[in-house]
Design a protein around this nucleic acid. Structure first.
Lengths: 181, 181
DNA sequence: GTCTATAAGAAGATAGAC
DNA sequence: GTCTATCTTCTTATAGAC
């Protein structure tokens, strides 16, 4: 069954925004790939920013769910490792990863979008769950780098003949190592 | 003594490109801040891309120097730690850091610029110096995250009342910890 | 080196027909 | 839901005077 037009706009926009950049991608291009005119897009999304907001929503909802979960848990090393594990699980879902990639690559262009701002907040709250006030600065940096590692490890794929699975597995191993006191 | 116009264009462009994004910053804005007309910019730089190339040049030269140095050294743990240390030293120089920040934030918009491409190459070669073929994948990821940590630690400054010096010192400590086997 | 003036085009967005 | 046609505004870039 054919997806609805709204979803297809999201898919095409996400791909083009990521490949070419947000500002560099015009509504004309999106419309052409979809096989309609620019004006048709305006029936589904009021503005270009609305398309971004709808994409950000896909990720924010996931992150807020994760944050809500961790707040029900006791603040133990066990919980922190489990949070890293769950974050890694989110990150292997293609849709989540694509949206994340789009946002990483267009930080500046997106800086004024309210939904993007909300997402940054949630990410900061999530990393804050990884340490306690009594931890040293070095420990806090190390813990934050655990989440970063899950994101950044895909760089490794460039010059190596490794499968995605090997990289995912190894970067989780490294991330958990960074969580050690 | 007043700097020359070319240098002032570079400074203003670098700031606006970083704050607002590369595509979102027009030559008109740069000219207005400089107090001249758009046309005057074209005397100093043939195109907008030329301004970017001149900015990238500032960083590429530094990185190539670092790469040239490390290639004269024996491939020992000692050399690798020294490379991390030297990279950290580069990163505290304001001009280098500003250009780096600009590039991090505008990855997609800059993807087709040849100078940017060269910079990515040099960065990859630098990280390749941090490990040997016999190292496990986890070790290689961990070592690459050492350089990443030096970049990313500035995120820590957001919600804390820490001095830049404390953060720099602690992130170097973490980076060197990540270099351990 | 900097100016005015202008070209040539693409962008986001809207009105109204079908 | 999608179209054609159009508006307005902005962009990069150039020609030629001073």
């Amino acid at each position: 069954m054919r997806e609805d037009t709204r979803t297809r706009i999201q898919e095409i926009a996400l791909r083009l925004f990521t490949e070419q950049g947000y500002e560099a991608t015009s509504l004309r291009e999106i419309a052409e790939e979809l096989g309609v005119t620019k004006a048709a897009l305006y029936y589904h999304f009021k503005t270009k920013e609305d398309i971004v907001a709808s994409l950000a929503e896909l990720r924010v909802a996931d992150l807020e769910e994760l944050l809500a979960w961790v707040r029900t848990q006791p603040k133990t090393p066990e919980t922190r490792r489990e949070l890293v594990q769950r974050y890694a699980d989110k990150l292997v879902q293609p849709r989540y990863r694509e949206v994340t990639r789009f946002m990483e690559r267009n930080q500046t262009a997106l800086r004024d979008h309210p939904k993007i701002h909300r997402m940054r907040e949630v990410m900061l709250e999530l990393t804050a769950q990884l340490h306690e006030p009594s931890d040293t600065l070095a420990t806090r940096i190390s813990r934050s780098m655990a989440l970063f590692t899950l994101h950044a490890a895909k760089w490794m794929a460039q010059d190596e003949s490794l499968t995605e699975e090997e990289i995912t597995k190894a970067s989780l191993e490294v991330a958990l190592r960074f969580m050690e006191p």
